[in-house]
Design a protein around this nucleic acid. Structure first.
Lengths: 214, 214
DNA sequence: GTCTATAAGTAGATAGAC
DNA sequence: GTCTATCTACTTATAGAC
């Protein structure tokens, strides 16, 4: 079972760096320095590899979302969850490189991915109402409809920030990817914050910055 | 030259509905009810077809952006440009269905597409400063940095709104696609607006709505 | 301009020897 | 478990007849 696991690890790394669509089963076998036949002994094909990687992605993601939902969580913890969710997305970033075609190709994943996104959507909505209750964000016009649109903007960001940065030729390492995403999410919320909260936000961002240089 | 043009029209329709990656030269020929050999007589291959479609997309887009830049434009005109730009994007939506892989496959398009996006980015920035000058949006914290982030959010939306809606199984017709995008952009700006401007915004949206039903 | 026929290349998959 | 050899299916691309 060790080789099987090894195939998954190497495949994930390859998919992340080259893109799933650009790799054949033979390419993966070459990178592993085994024969294609051997690869097919362990997995029915590329489809089974992608499927198992998705299982891992989904399982990990659901854990994060459940944790974040259950513990009514303080403010700082929300930002922490933001961080680890983005980290998880970055670890499986090949899924987000060309979602449309990937889900069309692997149709068994499609409904599950969609459910997962809906779950994440609920998580974001809860984050927003949480921030409202804590008084972090406050605004006369923050009606239910506005919360929905804001949720969509944040989901759009989670889902396509990686593609967007690549499209603009920004090859960010994991830390910069996460930080830029969090900065962007915070900017979406900033107009709803008071001066005090804005200062706290900037302090958070500085902290991330220092953490990186350190 | 009539057949050549016909090939482009049919290819665009096919690409938009099925996705460029899912169509071979033979598929296109079948839809046209001509032989593959004939298709290859008119175009070197799928690449040349995609290239010419991109030319059309780029040329039309640059016209729209230039117009919007030059005429310092009143407020209502900005919203109108928003509409026609989204319309143009929707007409060539296959480019936005899986941008990452498409630009990797057709590398001659990549730098041009990136330049076009930068131009659009400048247009958005000008839209925002225009709205600021007109007093439509106003906020103590709307510093240059904030404008940049807001520009990014709007560009993200322009670029991936189509994919995002599809991912969520929303198969919108052209009008609903455009309207949902404009609503989303307006919601990004809403927290920077005063009550009066918000009412005007809602009036605009109602107008779109009526236009559709009528 | 349009067709048929076919070459050349590649990804996916399996059989059978070791 | 691992390998070599091979087969199918598909896409792109071209040659040459009409």
């Amino acid at each position: 079972m060790k080789r099987r696991e090894h195939i998954l690890v190497v495949s994930l790394a390859l998919f992340n760096s080259e893109g799933e669509a650009n790799l054949s089963a033979v390419d993966i076998a070459n990178e592993l320095e085994i024969s294609p036949g051997n690869l097919y002994y362990h997995f029915k094909g590329k489809e089974e590899i992608v499927s198992e990687l998705y299982e891992k992605f989904e399982a990990g993601f659901e854990l994060l979302l459940q944790d974040g939902m259950e513990t009514g969580a303080g403010l700082e913890e929300y930002w922490l969850y933001l961080y680890v969710i983005l980290e998880h997305i970055h670890n499986f970033r090949f899924f987000f490189r060309n979602i449309t075609d990937l889900l069309q190709k692997y149709q068994s994943i499609e409904p599950r991915f969609r459910r997962l996104m809906e779950k994440q959507s609920r998580w974001v909505r809860q984050l927003l109402t949480g921030l409202l209750e804590e008084g972090v964000i406050v605004h006369p016009h923050l009606a239910a409809e506005r919360i929905e649109r804001l949720t969509d903007s944040i989901m759009l960001l989670f889902t396509y920030w990686y593609q967007f940065q690549n499209l603009r030729n920004r090859k960010l390492d994991q830390h910069d990817f996460i930080q830029s995403a969090i900065l962007q999410i915070m900017t979406l919320l900033a107009p709803y914050m008071g001066d005090q909260q804005l200062q706290f936000m900037e302090a958070c961002l500085n902290l991330y910055q220092r953490e990186k240089q350190g």
